[in-house]
Structure formats: C-alpha cells, structure tokens
C-alpha cells in the first residue's frame, strides 16, 4: 500500500474529501445503473404473474355463440 496509515489514506494530504466523494458518487450511480433495469424486469414479471393468476382463477368465458 502506498499510504502509511488509514488516516493518511482518508485525508490524502488534503485531497481526500475530493477523491473519496468522487468515488462514492460513482459507486452510487453504478449501483443504480445495475439495480434499475433489474427492478424493472422484476416488476414486469410480477405483474404478469398476477395477471396469469387472475386469469386462472376466473371461470372460463361463457360461450356466447350458442345463445341466440
């Protein structure tokens, strides 16, 4: 490791606040980039599962062709 101690790595001779905040913001954005499509996919599948359950629970549609 380049730094002698943990506190030296955190302060980075006065640049620590800039460097660590840049990395933190990036980490948050990258996690969001991965989680957003994953959640969207989950939502679609869950909605569809609910729809299929409702369809299965309903009685079959009446055959109206024989009613005159």
């Amino acid at each position: 490791m380049y730094f002698e101690s943990l506190s030296a790595a955190l302060t980075m001779d006065g640049h620590g606040a800039f460097v660590w905040s840049a990395y933190a913001i990036t980490a948050v954005v990258l996690v969001g980039m991965l989680v957003a499509p994953w959640r969207r996919q989950r939502r679609t599948l869950r909605q569809l599962t609910g729809l299929l359950k409702r369809e299965a629970g309903q009685p079959p549609p009446r055959d109206r062709s024989r009613e005159v």
Partner: peptide, 28 residues
C-alpha cells in the same frame, strides 16, 4: 471494478504535480 478502485486509490504512487487528487483519473 472493486479491485481496480482499490488499486487506484491505495496502491499507486501520487502524481508529482497534482498529488493525490489525480486518483480520480481511475473513474473519470
């Protein structure tokens, strides 16, 4: 990504002119 960030943040020498602030280069 985690390995690269740790490498850039903690295991590289500082820039002789910019000091440690240059470490942002590894994400920028």
């Amino acid at each position: 990504l985690v390995a690269g960030a740790v490498w850039g943040l903690l295991f590289t020498p500082p820039d002789f002119r910019q000091g440690n602030s240059y470490r942002i280069i590894y994400i920028h």
